[in-house]
Each structure stands twice: as C-alpha cells, then as structure tokens.
Design a protein around this nucleic acid. Structure first.
Lengths: 150, 150
DNA sequence: ATACTAATTATAATAATTTTTCAATATAAT
DNA sequence: ATTATATTGAAAAATTATTATAATTAGTAT
C-alpha cells in the first residue's frame, strides 16, 4: 500500500506543476480518503470530515471540486452506482474491479489477471486507446445469500 | 436482432402478468428505444418523442417511470456515465460492453467471450450470485486519435 | 356495448444532487 | 511585507429524479 506521505507529496507536486495551490482543505480531503477504507459519496466525505474535525469548516462545494481534481490527477478513483451518484475511493491503489450487492449495498473489490489482460487486448483490437476501465458485477453477496436462506 | 413485434408482445405479456396496464405511452417509449440506436438519457427520450410525435403529449415523469419499469423487466438496459445520470438502450440485445470516448463522447459496443466467461467464473469463485455485470473501457476512439494527429 | 374498478397519466410541486457565482480569504512568489 | 492569483464558503442556480394528486384511461365484468 502506497503510504500517505507519498500521496501527499504527489498532490503537492501535481498542484505545483499546474500552478495550483496547496490548501488545508485539499490535504484534508486526501487524508480522509486515505484513512477511510471504502467507497464514499461526496456527502459521505463531507460528513466524515465534519465528524472527525468538528473545529474545521469546509464547504460541500469544495468537496465536489476537490474530489473531481483528485480524480483527474489519479489520486482518487470513482465508481458510478446505479442509484444516485459517484462513489470515491483512494487512487494509486492496485487496479481492481467491484462487486456491488443489491441487497445490502456493500461494495467489494476484486482483481483478476485474465480479465485485465483481455481488456488490454480488446481495446487494442478495436484501435481504442484505453485510459482506464472499470467493471462492475452486480448481484447478491455471499452474506446476503446466507441471510436469505435462514 | 430481436424484432419489434416480439418486444411489444413481451411488454404486453409482462404487463399482464403483473396486473399492469398497456398504455400508449409505454408502447411509445419502447418503440422509441427500438427505433433509435444509441444510449439515451431520459431527457433525450423525452425530446425524441416530442420531436417525432408533435401531436402527442407525454410527461417527463412518465419517461422516468417507464424506463425504470422497462429496465426492471429487461426490456431496457442502463449505463451510468461519469457525468450526469443514466443512459438507456434497448434491452434483450446480446450482452455487450462499452467503449466510451472521452473526446467525442461516443459510446461503442463490443463483446468478448473470454471476458464474459471469466466474469462468471470470478463471481462464482467469490460466492457472489451475479445478476448482471457491466464493463466500460474509457479512452480515445480511433476516429479521435486520427483527428488529433492531423 | 356499458359500466365499473384500479392503474396510469400529466402537471406541478418537491427533493436530491451537483455546479456556478462571487466576495472574502489564503497561498506562493517576489 | 506586498502583490497577484487561486481558492474558499455560502448561497443561488442548474440539473436530475421522485412524489402527490386529480383527471383520464385500460381492462374486466356485466
């Protein structure tokens, strides 16, 4: 796992490169993504920050803006859920795909080499220059299946 | 390609099964999806219907409700695009995945047996009961790459 | 055919989510 | 420290989706 100091210096480097400024809000949002494992809506991030830093004021618009920036620069990744909007997670992690459970809403990560490799090939075959890819498998997780049986 | 009469009779059968009613609006929305190849937002569908049937009045809420119904019954499929909301396409087509071009926004369909098969296996390996799956490859399409070179 | 019942509709209001505007503030370079 | 500029929070605006309701319509039974 990439460590926080590295991500922070990446953020600083990127901001400098683009003539943008390093702010406490941007740092805080990155840190929040780093310290919380999961897939969060902007609203989630907003509430986590408020809960964990009752002294700090931050606007929801800043959350939206910053998450978009982090994603653009690869420091965050997003996932579109069927209902409602995007969920964000920390970027620079090993690439992976997602299981989404329709019963409990849980999002689980998985990785499969065969699929990864084949995606590259398929893109190449179609002359498509791949920048990213995502796969979602929607269904019912093991836990919910067991729960249903009882 | 499944023909329209089949889809229409499917719709009628499903509605009857569920004690719902066959209405001109529901038929019109299915027909619109059938006759227009592409991936449309509810707003798109609304505008296409208004344009092609200036005499008919239909409410945007009906579009939303009907698309959700059609999707639930498999007569339509939806795809979450990064910006904004869902895009719908006709259902009962052969399953496929999507290329999304970040330059021109074009969505292209593709199908790959290796990926399909492997998805089934991965879900099974994780004890996940797959209901559906989707894959998006985001990048730059051949046409835009060529355009950029000029 | 007609009448009846319940589902469906359009419209408008409402809710939820995301983006934009703008004046005040904070940052980075000098 | 000063200055120029990017960023922020707050509120307004825009977008997207859902809900309530009275009127209408489809499907069934008569």
């Amino acid at each position: 796992m990439v460590d926080y100091d590295f991500m922070l210096s990446e953020l600083k480097r990127i901001l400098k490169d683009k003539g943008l400024k390093f702010t406490s809000q941007r740092e805080l949002i990155l840190k929040t993504l780093y310290e919380n494992d999961g897939h969060f809506s902007p609203e989630d991030i907003y509430m986590i920050i408020q809960r964990e830093n009752p002294d700090i004021k931050i606007g929801i618009a800043t959350i939206y803006r910053t998450l978009a920036l982090l994603e653009e620069e690869g420091l965050a990744d997003s996932l579109s859920i069927d209902n409602g909007g995007k969920r964000y997670e920390l970027g620079l992690k090993k690439h992976h795909d997602h299981f989404i459970c329709t019963e409990c809403g849980k999002i689980t990560e998985f990785y499969d080499d065969v699929i990864e490799k084949r995606q590259e090939e398929v893109a190449k075959e179609h002359g498509f220059k791949m920048k990213s890819h995502s796969m979602k498998i929607v269904g019912i997780c093991k836990e919910c299946q067991d729960k249903n049986k009882q």
